[in-house]
Design a protein around this nucleic acid. Structure first.
Lengths: 337, 337
DNA sequence: TTGATGTGTGGGAGCGCTCTTACAACGTTG
DNA sequence: CAACGTTGTAAGAGCGCTCCCACACATCAA
């Protein structure tokens, strides 16, 4: 079954033309006699020829793949359990497939792994990198930039650097949540923030706090969570013991919000009657949760697609100045608040 | 920043040796004078040399990547929302990274996409394929086999063919659920099956039905679902109207089980007091569900890793006879049944 | 006619690497 | 001391492709 793959030369021999002519037909058919084109096409058909992508890559310096790098996540490969990364993947794959580009999945959760990613890209195994980096201290963006690898980030880099990225206005998202809770007449409003070493968490919380202050609530009892269900539950418990009379919670993502709802229910506190809960992201848990979560939507799929779009544009004509695209959040009102 | 990458030749010039010697040092250092090795290593350091993987691939006929193909799913890119695929990805990535192999993600949900996958692999852009194919009628496994592409399937092929695969004993899983429900003293036991054109669904249901019959329940009211939350909810509604006095439900995956629990709760039926619910898979929704789901565990990550292992083994020494590895399910008893 | 322009085709270099072959330098042995 | 391995190195072919250049031929203005 493992017949030797026919080469350009084989096709040329069958068609009675030169290698170059076959190549012209295979690629952007330019200046080739229609009759000969026909002959060549038949020969290709007959031999079952498929161009060898590796050989082509060697000379064109393009592979038709990009690296999709999940970086900085300490958690290893269980990141794929987080609905967020699934959505990023979906958005990226969906966009790239229309351009015949394929993503190579890489995890960069250790220094060793990061080096491997940089090597991989420097070696030209992929044309560029799509970087989902969660921690601002992640050295990978800078190393990729240094190595001259075309990259686009999901979320702005931890320190200023000339690189393209997509992001969302997380502050505005926090504001949306605060406005909604205050407008609903809640008084003892609390928050479960994301990990404070993540920019998105900082921004969401800052936006929330600022808006609360503007509404006359200078202090918001807050417990820091870790974006996981467990941390959300723990935070909710702590919040409950510190502020037994709370009537609202803003959680920095849906996973934590869902866990918070569970804890509240266990304590006999009805949602939203006794306590209103607002989540963040609008991912699968928001809909699975009972009551369904009122949440701030982050258009992850569209952002991921945009990220891929920016990268392909940069690959197309290199050396453009970096670009950034910021998405606006949107409040999705459901049952929980 | 986009300096021209140094080549083997450049390093050789700096070190004052030949290209071949540098190559020997870079790869399995065989028969090279230690002093010269040292010199070469310094030269590599000095020039910042990184071997060009594409050029190497051209001659070695190996790329160091494999395709991870999600096939047959009609649903497009939202498959990544399904926790199942996230778990497969996690298992594959986790295993491959230890072998410096990277997965290229491909969706084969249309005929066009399938052709692209076959081309991609025939062109030698990846060394082999990891195929997660849900429908037995999927033509991709056969096409890949025809093209001589080393492949391993997740789940046995729809029609017999000489190909390696990993699978689970889904019948045993169904049996486990039936035994548990009967042992718990349930009498009006019902089922929400998966889509009947999926082998795993057929097996889970057949195993369940057989065991039920052995326990003296010749008929199990069943509604077919589609592995999604919506379909699970709809099925539960239908079941409820057809058998108002049901006291147990076996759902063919956790997503549907969770939805079923919600519907039951809405109807004022307490879980597990009034109705016991058993899910399948033991994925994220099983834990997120209130009450937490008693479920049949499918060790997806381990199975995915095994799949990758089989593929690498076949790549290592080709032409081995196909192998299959079948995993045993395990009942995880939680609160719902 | 001559040259300028344009179109279609073949030949050959070269992308960066691996691997086989040839050969030099060194023992070791009968 | 000739004959023979053994070890370390260089040279060169070649993986399959693209792309540049040369060339053959046709067309058209001067």
């Amino acid at each position: 079954m493992s017949k030797v793959a026919p080469t350009l030369e084989d096709v040329a021999k069958v068609a009675g033309v030169s290698r170059a002519t076959v190549s012209r037909v295979v690629n952007g058919t330019r200046n080739v006699d229609p009759d000969i084109q026909e002959t060549v096409r038949n020969a290709i058909e007959q031999t079952g020829y498929t161009p060898n992508r590796v050989a082509r890559s060697l000379v064109t310096r393009r592979t038709g793949t990009v690296a999709l790098v999940i970086s900085g996540a300490g958690g290893g490969s269980d990141v794929f359990t987080d609905p967020f990364f699934g959505r990023v993947t979906a958005g990226v794959v969906d966009f790239l497939r229309g351009h015949s580009v394929h993503p190579v999945l890489m995890l960069a959760d250790s220094d060793h792994a990061r080096t491997e990613v940089v090597e991989f890209l420097r070696q030209g195994s992929a044309d560029g990198a799509l970087l989902v980096s969660t921690h601002p201290a992640d050295p990978l963006p800078a190393r990729l930039l240094d190595a001259g690898v075309p990259s686009v980030l999901y979320a702005r880099p931890g320190s200023p650097m000339p690189v393209s990225y997509v992001d969302m206005d997380h502050r505005a998202g926090g504001r949306l949540a605060a406005d909604h809770l205050v407008a609903a007449g809640r008084y003892n409003i609390t928050a479960i923030s994301g990990p404070m070493d993540v920019l998105a968490s900082q921004d969401r919380h800052a936006g929330f706090r600022d808006a609360m202050a503007r509404h006359g609530f200078p202090y918001v009892p807050t417990v820091e969570g870790g974006f996981t269900a467990e941390s959300g539950a723990a935070a909710m418990h702590q919040l409950l013991s510190e502020c037994p009379d709370l009537d609202a919670v803003f959680a920095a993502n849906d996973l934590m919000a869902q866990a918070a709802v569970d804890v509240l229910l266990e304590h006999g506190l009805r949602v939203p009657d006794a306590v209103a809960v607002v989540g963040f992201d609008d991912s699968a848990p928001a809909l699975a949760c009972r009551p369904q979560l009122t949440t701030v939507r982050q258009p992850v799929e569209r952002m991921a697609a945009q990220m891929a779009d920016l990268l392909l544009a940069d690959l197309e004509k290199p050396g453009q100045r970096p670009r950034s695209v910021i998405f606006e959040p949107e409040l999705v009102v459901r049952a929980s608040a």
